[in-house]
């Protein structure tokens, strides 16, 4: 059952006449990892950034089609492209979290970073906050490394630790979907392996969409893969099918390294 259903979705940036995404139809399945791959400029990040409408921080974008999100409370789908009110945006972003290309620790302590999403949501109870921060840090395999310095600035952590902190921060608000936008592109191989391991574990609780330019990464961790090219969704299938037995010539050319 998909947690998110993208249907005939097109997206146009302001000041541009041609859409950057054309007629995309794609499910994000529950408790699975869906990888978006393709050469740079194919629109994979644009698509990801549409899924929590972070695009809307910059005005003038044009959406067409539908992106239905399953609301766990009501069990109903809701088209997130209809959202106009601020409080609905806040709710959407609590349901659909995001991790970026580079670690983005806020200029505050480790604890406050993880507690941030909870605090702005109005949770003030100290013990509840520390419980949930601890749970999130444990869930992000960071607890053992930072438990003795929760009050210290998050800026002092290594890049890999910072990225796991950002994941803990996103996980703490218990989202339904987590969007990863090339989360390991700024990290060393060891940190990358730790993040990949973490993403695979998170799958048990959260549905995941990940943009990556690294095909090995997609084949290692994802359950489903979507190959995009020049704003089109070329092929979507189970990951093993895409990598071992692609139906489209363009997919095959890309994964065998003939272009891109």
């Amino acid at each position: 059952m998909p947690v998110m259903n993208i249907k005939k979705f097109s997206f146009t940036y302001p000041g541009v006449s041609d859409p950057s995404l054309k007629n995309i139809t794609l499910p994000i399945k529950k408790n699975k990892i869906t990888a978006l791959i393709g050469p740079s400029g194919c629109g994979k990040s644009t698509l990801l950034r549409s899924m929590n409408r972070i695009h809307d921080l910059y005005p003038g974008n044009k959406y067409e089609g539908k992106i239905d999100l399953l609301d766990f409370e009501s069990g109903k789908y809701k088209n997130i492209l209809d959202i106009k009110k601020e409080n609905e945006f806040i709710k959407l972003r609590q349901q659909v979290g995001m991790i970026f290309q580079k670690p983005t620790p806020f200029p505050m302590s480790i604890f406050d970073n993880v507690a941030y999403g909870l605090k702005i949501d109005g949770i003030k109870n100290k013990s509840e906050l520390s419980d949930r921060v601890e749970a999130a840090l444990k869930g992000s395999a960071l607890w053992s490394e930072v438990s003795d310095r929760l009050g210290k600035s998050a800026m002092g952590l290594s890049g890999g630790q910072q990225q796991r902190l950002c994941i803990a921060r996103a996980v703490a608000v218990k989202p339904e979907v987590l969007l990863f936008d090339e989360p390991t592109s700024a990290l060393d191989p060891i940190s990358t392996a730790a993040i990949e391991e973490l993403i695979v574990e998170l799958r048990n609780d959260i549905s995941i969409a990940i943009v990556t330019h690294n095909m090995q990464q997609a084949s290692r961790i994802s359950d489903y893969t979507a190959f995009m090219y020049l704003g089109d969704l070329v092929e979507y299938d189970k990951t093993e099918n895409i990598f071992l037995n692609p139906k489209e010539k363009r997919t095959e050319d890309y994964i065998t390294g003939r272009f891109g």
Binding site: N52, I54, L57, F89, I90, K91, R93, Q94, G97, M98, F100, T104, F106, Y116, G117, I120, D121, C166, R169, A170, V173
Partner: peptide, 8 residues
């Protein structure tokens, strides 16, 4: 964007 993505 990270802060907005947490619902700020």
């Amino acid at each position: 964007e990270s802060a907005y993505a947490l619902g700020a």
